[in-house]
Design a protein around this nucleic acid. Structure first.
Lengths: 191, 191
DNA sequence: AACCTTGGCTAAGTAGCTTAGCTTTAAGGC
DNA sequence: GCCTTAAAGCTAAGCTACTTAGCCAAGGTT
């Protein structure tokens, strides 16, 4: 029995690749083990079963997405920053259709890297909102609104949920434009 | 073997109740069969397996949601109608936590009732948007934006995804208020 | 060289879904 | 009132996927 020499990182990275190829839902331990050239139960030496694997995948994907969003916004502000970040978000979902769904998982408090990645993602949005003069509770609400809008879009897009015949890129630009308007005239916090 | 006397409707209705109790993900054929007092394979006489069951559940839930949204908006217009409909949407998700996720399933073209329910739901939103003077492509984009916003909110809320400490009802009102503003100054279609 | 941690394995068991094929109920025609 | 038959139930069997238990060998450490 020649050793393959796996470790957790190698397993999770391969899982990410596989997920992008076959889809998040189709990511199975059996397929992953086959890809890595080991028997299925061997994976348990590296990750805590199927759930542990998806949690680690979530941590990886969240970190990647946070990176992309941050780099997109750097050196920009206001509507420019918003558009750049929104594009980076959608791009990531397109480039990594299998990893993207994992980013929606609530960070595991027991995994510091996961928690940190989540905070960086939120922080990137916060930074953009500061350009609109939004801070404190307003920024919290606005962050939620933006996350929802972006996530909702790419999810429905991926599901083919846009039955209505309308150019999708354009819809996205419209969405971002409307968020821009919302943020500029954000309802007063005591509303 | 005394007959229970099931039919498709009885099976789907019980599935809806069960889903609300144990959660959409935990809705299993085994649990449903136990609840109905029949052996698991007997369900196949009424629905086409697990997938067929969730599709029928989706049709039921979508119809219910469309009804609620429509009744909420009737006799109102503009921001009033928007708020009422948004509240009805979130209420439904709260009252039927197990059915709600099923409403996100793309309508099955082979199931006329499902298709019709989906059209009624979109139609209810369209009617409200007409009050903002939005029609045609603008209404399409705005409908997508509203669906996303509402769905995103209740999904994140259900997932406990609002880690940030902030009153959730209030966030919802803010969200709806910001949609109201967006719709009143919707970007021109040629933007 | 002996040790012992680690990464691999096989075997076995669980949960859930599905199909095949049989039996019985109960409705309808004669 | 019987006979036929479609429908509704059943058991048996098999599939996929995940999980646990327990064993063995590879290979670094002392």
């Amino acid at each position: 029995m020649p050793r393959v020499g796996l470790n957790q990182q190698a397993v999770v990275r391969e899982a990410a690749r596989l997920a992008d190829e076959v889809g998040f839902q189709q990511l199975t331990l059996a397929a992953l083990a086959g890809r890595l050239g080991v028997a299925l139960p061997s994976l348990y030496k590296h990750v805590r079963g199927a759930d542990g694997l998806t949690q680690k995948l979530a941590a990886l994907a969240t970190a990647e997405l946070a990176n992309d969003m941050t780099s997109a916004a750097v050196g920009r502000s206001g509507g420019d920053a918003l558009r750049a970040m929104a594009d980076a978000y959608r791009d990531y979902a397109h480039r990594h259709p299998g990893r993207y769904p994992a980013t929606q998982r609530v960070p595991d408090p027991a995994d510091p890297e996961h928690v940190e990645a989540g905070e960086r993602a939120v922080g990137a949005i916060f930074a953009v909102l500061r350009g609109y003069g939004l801070t404190g509770d307003d920024a919290v609400d606005a962050t939620r609104a933006l996350r929802r809008a972006l996530h909702g879009f790419v999810t429905l897009e991926a599901a083919g949920g846009f039955g209505l015949p309308r150019d999708v890129d354009r819809s996205y630009r419209q969405l971002v434009a409307s968020m821009d308007i919302s943020f500029r005239s954000w309802p007063a916090s005591d509303g």
